[in-house]
Design a protein around this nucleic acid. Structure first.
Lengths: 170, 170
DNA sequence: TATTGTTATACTCTATAACTATA
DNA sequence: TATAGTTATAGAGTATAACAATA
């Protein structure tokens, strides 16, 4: 159902085995647009939800001056100290060239370090500094708080259900 | 194409109430990284899932030469013919200045048109051309097919559950 | 004075080619 | 020959200021 306006709304198409209809936007303003077609699209809902969650994340982490990407880098280095740049970058889906300036910045701020590898003089072993570990601890606590608030929005078991569903898409 | 070849595991997330559970045993290879901390983060899962779904979308829509953004614009114009640029753009979360070149391109391809408004000489009434409607119909069918495949990945009721959970985050 | 569409601009992300020094 | 880190660069995507025409 749905469709605030009568117009053209998926008239034909009898084969709808997967049920593409169910989302619906209640009444909004007087001249509100019909977005029913978009709201049923998984990709669109994913994009909007991701933007909303990231926006919230960025606002929270403003005090730590950390972007989501920087947080993920600190987290992965912290859990995997001594790994090569290429390994960390690949794990995060970051192109190696783009990872250079990210590390430059984290190193400049004294949060991470590029140590010489003992076995391969080409590679760098990434580690967190003490300051980096300390900041990561604060960031983790902050992120846990966001996770708790998201869990509340999502209802009982909703967060775990959501993550499980998202994993199926990757 | 072929972005990110990261190595993510499929941690079984045993449900735990509201607090962040970050104890997932990563059935790891010899030198696989520990990403358990990230995999429990809703925002990160959202981002990766969104990228995966969009990548699939882009590959499918390559034959129609439509990006996800262009598809959303055609869809919303089709369901809301005669609306102003600013209205369509706002509904999609697109900045008005950035919407200009998008419309230029759709108009250049003969898919959409900027008609003079009958009531306000400043504004343009957006409509689809016949070719635009025809392309949109093909795109919709293509998108329905993706939705069906996603639904299969997500299991019985999974797609509807996912969309409902995502709506709670916006 | 406010709004619509537009131009110009800038900043972030992301992607690729190519260099260097090692292996 | 291949790999790790790097440089340079190009392309999207997104954000804001400002202007002309109109309300």
């Amino acid at each position: 159902m749905a469709s605030s306006t009568e117009g053209m709304r998926r008239g034909r198409s009898t084969a709808r085995s997967a049920t593409v209809d169910e989302a619906e936007e209640a009444t909004a303003g007087p001249d509100a647009l019909d977005l029913s077609g978009l709201n049923a699209v998984v990709g669109y809902a994913l994009r909007r939800a991701q933007l909303a969650v990231f926006e919230d994340f960025i606002a929270r982490f403003a005090t730590l001056d950390l972007t989501p990407a920087q947080y993920s880098v600190l987290l992965v280095i912290g859990n995997n100290p001594g790994r090569k740049q290429a390994e960390i970058a690949a794990a995060l889906g970051i192109q190696r060239p783009n990872f250079v300036s990210m590390l430059d910045e984290l190193e400049r701020r004294g949060l991470a370090e590029r140590l010489p590898s003992a076995t391969d003089r080409r590679s760098h072993a990434l580690v967190l500094t003490k300051a980096g570990s300390a900041l990561l601890a604060r960031a983790r606590a902050m992120q846990d708080e966001q996770e708790r608030e998201l869990a509340q929005k999502l209802g009982p078991g909703g967060r775990e259900m959501l993550v499980a569903l998202l994993q199926r898409l990757m």
